[in-house]
Amino acid sequence: MPRITVTVDGIKYEEDVEPRLLLVHLLRERLGKTGTPIGCDTSNCGACTVMLDGKSAKSCSVLAVQADGRDVVTIEGLGANGDLHPMQRAFHEEHALQCGYCTPGMVMAAIDLLRDDPDPSEETIRHGLEGNLCRCTGYCNIVRAVRRGAQEMGQAVNTP
């Protein structure tokens, strides 16, 4: 079994993994990182989105061995010193979650979106989140939250 070294939320792990083990299963079942959920088996829903070396990735479509030597940040490692990340706070303020199952992936995708465009329009947000499905909110408040998150992360946001 290949041995990999992977940093998850700031902690370094050494694990022997079957080549077929998915990163999301490594996180959830081996490392106890259950904050990242699974919503599908075809890479459509985005619930499992994490940051892999600073870029969002669907952890259900990455093999654990592919994460060897890389840095993973999950929703559990996002806030610093027990504080919420501004995007998490924005989701709370705008009531952008109901059941919360899509939320970890949605927050990760939203942060990633701002890397490309720190000042996204509603249109850009809607298209940028296309790979993340939510069944509860109808997305209205998620869009609002992303705009607010962008603002709070120190970026100006176009007024509509």
Binding site: T34, T74, H92, L97, G100, T103
Partner: peptide, 19 residues
């Protein structure tokens, strides 16, 4: 009121059955 439920859902301290 902002929801009391949100804190754990936003930080991944969830209790989904599969967890």
């Amino acid at each position: 009121r902002r929801r009391k439920e949100d804190a754990r859902l936003l930080t991944g301290r969830t209790r989904w059955t599969d967890n």
